[in-house]
Write a protein that binds this DNA or RNA. Structure first.
Lengths: 199, 199, 199, 199
DNA sequence: AATGCTCCAGCTGAGC
DNA sequence: GCTCAGCTGGAGCATT
């Protein structure tokens, strides 16, 4: 395999030498990268053999490395997804997280109804579908009444908390008005104006 | 460009006809798939123009479509990651979620120390770094005392809740014993035995 | 952000320290990998600014780095693809390459007809569709006559060369017999036997 | 569980209904896409069981589907890569393809030396490294003399053809002048001007 | 609008 | 035999 045309000075060569250097450099860098990758695989294998969940470890590593901006964006997406889940009745027992609550409160999404309707709720209730439906309805009424989503009356682990959230979010998106800000992509180019792509 | 050797019957042809049919079928299927993809892009574009967060919508769609098994696995990984975050002090204010708590309780990870040390905590405390450190220490003591992680004394939105969780998880992994079950990959082939890959 | 639960020795810690070390190591390795990647990007940018075709350079680098085995497999696939193209009349003016010719010769794919039919061909012919069709037909006859594909009578740059190849390959796959070896995946688990997955 | 807040009219609902419709549509489209994918897998499996080389079949399918523009670009990159390979002495026995030859001729890359030096070459030579080196040197001289690369004196299957190409291309890039046009990315923004990114 | 980039899913080769 | 990690190819996105 001729590496290069045999014996000659070619010290004036220009393009070929440049090209060769570029290629060699890139090959070298790629080789070094392979070494690093191998070492990482080793560490992962050791972690696995010790019993750690490698997928979870990688998740942590990714988190550590991702810049704050990505993290922020990730949270933005997740909070929006939670609100959507709630509005579609897909919460599945897990109530809204902090980010989603903050987003909903920040945007004052409530249709601003007449008056507060939330009353005392006893914690000792047995959880049945009916009870959950009632909580959902409570959430809707609360939303109409202008109650903030953060004022969900049920405690953190109470299944009714999620149901109330669902009702609230559903109502927030069901007022016949335009899409509320909390449903929109945050930090848009056009802060408040709506662009109707098909109108 | 000749599409095929010109005029002849070739009704006995075997391999070529088969090949042609296979290729044509695959091309057709791929074309149909492209159409579907275009339609999906259209819908996404419309959603975007209406103001929805497309990334969040896609997340919802993915969730809807992913089979229960994937969902379960995803949760497994996420709960492990949360426990790791807690142990490394990376919770960042968000306390452990349900799955992680359940996992920690299920595995009875506590080193079973001497006696319960948790006392009353007043909710009205101003949150300072010191207060969080105290909560962290409380969590560690609670872990040593055999308190279950589910018995975190702080309420859902109290920042000390996360700190207590961190302390508890850190302690659970710091007892000088082997890696606790809650840190391990769930449902392993070898339920409890450890295999040291490096000897 | 508390890096770790505040002030204590914890020199007996086990799982947590291990986990921390694993994560830190992986983060470090990933960071180093990023540096290498940046350097590679720099080199690529320089190459681009000098006027080189970066995509082509990357291709060369990839080639240099890919092990011989991958190269071999790549060639296997490419030779098969060429034969398929020829059989489907998709050569588009480019005749079969060396690898495909060798493969076809090695497998003696010709249906072994009666006698040689190829006669002299004058090079000065004007190329018209008819001429190409004639060359195609010649190739088919040559195949039936047992002529090896390597004995294509047309010179390298003659468009009829590709047409002859097309005819030859088409005939090789059109004999009404089973799929010829040259059409099959080389180096199969079952050297000659065919397994019909569908019955 | 709860698909949506139970029984109510909500015919005025806006955002939620829109969202639900979008999600449902996307789920439906993705499901249809899955079906198509399954069918394609079936066909591929059948092809495999019949003995076809599935990778090669996929390559053909891809080719059939890729638009002419992609094809053109692909060829551009490949021809550049071939020229680079030749200049670096990596041809490995395969001479330049048509596209590369055309590119080199189009750009008149030769340094335009003194006089033609190519003489008759007898085909019966035994191929040895020395012979290849000689062919390489011939190619270089031919390039210096202004001979077009298309006038490579060796026939298509002669190994010296590749060596001659290598010498020619090497010389074309080694004249101490700037990077020749044939080495550059075709159809650049700045047709002839060079921008030195690091000068 | 075109291009490069980054992320993701699907595929392939090992390993228990 | 099945699973799993690594990898390649493609699609969406941001950018100019």
């Amino acid at each position: 395999m001729g590496r290069k045309p045999k014996s000659e000075p070619m010290r004036n060569s220009n393009a070929v030498d440049e090209l060769r250097e570029i290629v060699d450099t890139l090959v070298g860098l790629a080789d070094e990268a392979d070494i690093l990758k191998d070492r990482a695989s080793e560490v992962a294998a050791r972690a696995k053999s010790r019993g750690f969940d490698v997928a979870a470890v990688k998740k942590i590593v990714k988190e550590r490395r991702e810049p704050a901006s990505s993290k922020t964006k990730r949270d933005e997406v997740e909070s929006a997804a939670e609100i959507y889940r709630a509005a579609l009745g897909m919460l599945g027992g897990t109530p809204l997280g902090d980010a989603a609550r903050e987003r909903l409160s920040r945007d004052e999404v409530a249709p601003a109804g007449d008056d507060a309707t939330r009353e005392e709720t006893d914690q000792a209730t047995t959880i049945t579908p009916d009870v959950l439906d009632a909580a959902r309805e409570e959430g809707r009424e609360a939303c109409r009444a202008g109650t903030l989503v953060i004022d969900n009356p049920y405690t953190a682990r109470d299944p009714r908390r999620a149901a109330w959230d669902e009702g609230w979010c559903f109502e927030a998106g069901s007022d016949g008005m335009d899409i509320p800000d909390a449903f929109r992509r945050q930090k848009p180019k056009k802060p408040a104006g709506d662009e109707d792509g098909e109108g």
